[in-house]
Write a protein that binds this DNA or RNA. Structure first.
Lengths: 258, 258
DNA sequence: TAGATTGTTAATCGATTAACAATC
DNA sequence: TAGATTGTTAATCGATTAACAATC
């Protein structure tokens, strides 16, 4: 779409030259991660030193999901207003959220869906494949091995771990089951960085410790306990019973709030 | 522990009588939900008209989980400081959260674990049994039928629903599998108020519609779509791929934030 | 051009924290 | 009593919203 960069330079001041927006998008692919020399940009826009609230990152995933749906529906572009309506958010919030990471839209046009998907994937780190380990093969762990949603976002379960000798050596959904003593070895071999912890509550802390020792960098914890982890290891917790409790509260208090 | 109420009245002003704290706890069981005549209390403390932030309710579940653990460990009482340390929260936040719902502690002592568990269960609505339906018996739905954590918090899966005729009529983990056409009928019969939606994304909205028509009051949605529901139906969404995306982001940005 | 929509600022709103009198 | 800890207020901090110039 762009034939040369020189043609796209536009004057923006006495002796300063800027670039038009459509050129910027192409250039970004060139200079991304290498030349962070765009000193003219607002310090809050895409500045890696501004801490990003967790809630913002969480909504980013929603934007990604909705954009993927829009693309499947054949849409080329969308706007913060349209996205907001579909997600129950204000347009201002969506633009503000994206501004933490850079400028991705076109005034008067909106956002190109495919471009924004690419950008959000890059921000979330899902522009690559993540080999993942599942530890614990009870009901939940076994189900997660074949979870379609993981594969669709680039998370590949390459190994499962158990203490139950009767399961070790099996292959479940194409995934080999190892004894947990082989954790370090397999993690190293497969380049696994993320672990999904689906063991009973009583075992969770000690198994988490073993994940840390195996140099796992992030743990998705399904056990209903607060893990004690070094700050070098990231964690996300999902307690399914708590989710139902939140629903219970919402139902019981529905009349009061509406 | 209390022999009579009269003995526990204490003077607090010219012609006003108050009650001591330990009596208050006993009295609360009497007057709870019936006599809201305690006009002397601060309007924000336990006032049902003050909207409760979602984040507060979410932490309430964490407090409940941690208190249950403390009780299992043999502790009688705890404090906001101790709870905070275990959960990575400030003591002030815990006291503030609880203040939305009432006064549950004893100055100088802390909180009686069993009492606070009872109170939080009542607040969350899990002081009763909830019959629950699971809709969709793929990997995840099937796993959730036997999920121990649900039963422990009083959520009983009494029925499962599928469109796949080969599964209808089966019994999985003691739970009968019905065709989704029987939804209204079984929901009515079992007194089911909550539904766990574990169907493929493409089917989620239309199945949700059927749940609404069956007068389900709350939906725990595992499908990676934003459901369009009437405001009379409560919803909680869990997207497992999104949780891994959050973990991915945390790992990729770990260096920047610490 | 007129209409649409962005990115950004400032104003608003809400949530967290610190501090402390009241209490046991 | 002295020490501990609550419930509550006020101060701080952070997140959301409204508004609008810049842009296509």
């Amino acid at each position: 779409m762009i034939n040369g960069f020189a043609a796209c330079l536009v004057p923006v001041g006495d002796s300063v030259w800027g670039i038009c927006r459509s050129t910027r998008h192409c250039l970004l692919e060139f200079i991304h991660d290498r030349l962070m020399t765009d000193d003219s940009r607002h310090p809050d826009s895409g500045d890696p030193n501004v801490p990003v609230p967790k809630a913002v990152v969480s909504r980013l995933s929603l934007y990604l999901r909705e954009l993927s749906q829009l693309i499947r529906d054949g849409r080329d572009t969308t706007s913060s207003t349209q996205l907001g309506e579909r997600l129950g958010l204000t347009d201002a919030q969506i633009r503000k959220d994206l501004a933490y990471f850079g400028q991705f839209g076109y005034p008067g046009i909106g956002y190109r869906c495919d471009e924004l998907v690419t950008e959000i994937r890059r921000i979330l780190g899902t522009d690559r494949d993540w080999p993942v380990a599942i530890i614990g093969l009870g009901n939940l762990g076994t189900a997660l091995i074949g979870h379609r949603g993981f594969a669709e976002q680039g998370f590949r379960v390459t190994a499962a771990f158990e203490t139950d000798e009767s399961k070790v050596g099996m292959t479940l959904g194409g995934v080999p089951v190892f004894h947990i003593d082989q954790l370090s070895e397999i993690v190293k071999k497969d380049g696994i960085r993320l672990g999904i912890l689906a063991v009973p509550a009583k075992a969770a802390q000690s198994v988490a410790q073993r994940l840390v020792e195996a140099d796992i960098e992030g743990i998705l914890n399904f056990a209903p306990v607060t893990l004690s982890l070094p700050p070098t290891v990231s964690r996300v917790a999902v307690d399914l019973a708590i989710e139902l409790e939140q629903l219970s509260f919402a139902v019981v208090n529905r009349l009061k709030n509406s």
